[in-house]
Design a protein around this nucleic acid. Sequence first.
RNA 1: GGGUAGGUUGAGCAGGUGGUGAGCUCCGCUGACUGUAGAUCAGCCGUCUUUCGACUGUGGGGGUUCGAUUCCCUCCCUGCCCA
Length: 454
Amino acid sequence: MAPPIQFSSETTDVSRARLGTLETAHGTVDTPQFMPVGTQASVKALTPADLRATGTQILLANTYHLSLRPGEDRIARLGGLHRFMAWDGPILTDSGGFQVFSLGHLRTVDDDGVTFASHLDGSAQRLTPERAIAIQEALGSDIAMVLDHLVGSAGSVEGVRDAMERTHLWAGRSLEARRRADQAVFGIVQGGIDRGMRAESARAIAALPFEGIAIGGLSVGESKAEMADALEVVAGVLANDPRPRYLMGVGAPDDFFVAIEHGVDLFDCVLPTRLARHGQLWTSRGRLRLGNAGLLDDPRPVDDVCGCETCRDYSRAYLAHLFRAGELLVHRLTSVHNLTYTLDLMRAIRQGLRDGGYQALRDRVTSQFAAPSDDPQSTGNGPLQAHSETDAASDLGLDERRLMGNRDRPKKQPKRKPKDKDKAHKAAPPMVYEPMTVEVIKPRRKPRDEPDAG
RNA sequence: GGGUAGGUUGAGCAGGUGGUGAGCUCCGCUGACUGUAGAUCAGCCGUCUUUCGACUGUGGGGGUUCGAUUCCCUCCCUGCCCA
């Protein structure tokens, strides 16, 4: 039987960056590529047709959530995940490893697996490496992820090592549990931000016969410098490894570049869709916050060089109105835009790697998103602020801070000192944005009846 | 005209039976969010003040009192009932 996926890549003259093609039974993915997150078999607010229009080539869905509801057996009976959600393109399923982390106070981890209290009804749920594979095989995704154990950057050295070793143990068990030959399985590198452990983990995972290597446990509160450091270590270990590399949970526009330069091929992140629903839009000139009062009278599109439906048909004023009014349509329109921006950005990066425009693109996007900057195009839009590293991990450990969520945070937190956010960034001139050539992506339809399991 | 219930910070309310009314929810303003327990969450939201704090504010006016949102008089406004 043919391998479940085929990946070919070529090096570029930009550091370790590479251009590749990932072929799956449900279509081809150009890399570097971004995967929108559709946790519950839905990228929130968007239809598959919407996703196609944004340029989406591959989606992520979630084992943990779909296993709890509606249940993997039901999805299997209904023809598998692709058919269930009417998305005929490639799908990668996450294993539930992230929920081990994010649902911290609802679970206990032991060497055999994880016991969760379901976030839906509190019932006890058991997830083991074997079960995570079985669920994903029932769902029928193109790429399955192994169950891993990640800890926050605030964790102790012993805690990081413990989680890493457990992750390695589980990686081997996951491979032994495989039954389907038509589904790829990716291993996940852990090791926190410790260079030694990162390298050790990368070697351990790379030694196993996975179809791809994921880098997990990053963008969980560590600084950008620490993340870059960990990526560099992994990139060194994987330098001659031909398999696709997937950086999990990243990222913001400026995060892509450093990762791609360390040889990363795939990304996923909730940011573009979550921020869209929360009113933050990404544009060729930086961030735009729909809640800001200045947009209420602004007849311009969100981004005049964007070709998405939202920018083509609607004004900032209208979107700002919808946002205030709580109209559900705004979620679709903003999500369409942010995903279009993100996928256009990936396409521009690929193009830049080919034609030498990469560095200029990197400089522009980084200046717009990595540092606070004004959006010269917006009216009355306050200083645009990137999240700063001082936000995270002050009194509370990262884990605790994330796990308790905003709603449960103690009322009285030490107030942040006002920062000099108005200085320094007056200089950044609006960069000329060059519309990207649109690669027409044809839906790869397959007959409805054709079973996903080959 | 008679009766009755009311009038509190943009809106809607809570409270207060003589001893310092700035409390809530909306609205509004500004942020946060990275393998989605997130159409969520946080801060601010009378005036002045970076902060500390100061000041003002219970429909208007008057009275009693050391002190009135509270008691008395009067006027204005609103809802409802009756003529």
